[in-house]
């Protein structure tokens, strides 16, 4: 998996570096640098071809669209991962709290019902077993 990303990363780095050099050439253009510019332009196209080839290897990779919002706002996309993990943990804790509360409620209800309706609860336990939570 990592090799696929490394390959793409390498191509992207080369592409970015080529664009940076193109920018330098263009920023103060000299007549003698026209040949280099043409070479860089074609190198840019070959770079795009290389990136296009990487697409086949990364077909099954899904990227959440929310990450793009972070990048568009100039924010670190790792913040999205961080917030996602924090949100997941918070929700996990919430749900666990609900489950624990319901389990306590169930055990209390069973114990109280057993006091009031001992026969029926005996039958109930015969069906469900002694599944009272701790």
């Amino acid at each position: 998996m990592a090799e696929k990303f490394d390959n793409l990363e390498e191509h992207l780095e080369k592409f970015v570096e080529n664009i940076r050099q193109l920018g330098i050439i263009v920023s103060d253009f000299q007549p003698s640098s026209q040949a280099v510019l043409n070479q860089k332009l074609n190198f840019m196209i070959s770079g795009l071809q290389d990136i296009e080839k990487c697409r086949q290897q990364l077909h099954e990779i899904n990227v959440p669209l929310e990450v793009f919002d972070y990048i568009d706002q100039g924010r670190n996309p790792q913040l999205y991962t961080k917030e996602c993990l924090e949100r997941a943990l918070a929700r996990n804790e919430q749900v666990k709290g609900k489950i624990d509360t319901m389990m306590k409620f169930k055990s209390l209800l069973i114990s109280e019902l057993s006091k009031v309706f001992p026969e029926e609860m005996a039958k109930y336990k015969a069906i469900h077993g002694e599944d009272a939570p701790p």
């Binding site: 972070y70 990048i71 100039g74 924010r75 670190n76 996309p77 790792q78 913040l79 991962t81 961080k82 993990l85 924090e86 943990l89």
Partner: peptide
Amino acid sequence: AYNKFCGKKVKEKLS
């Protein structure tokens, strides 16, 4: 991943 991203402060900027 949790310790990596939530254990320390992640820098805000894309740069």
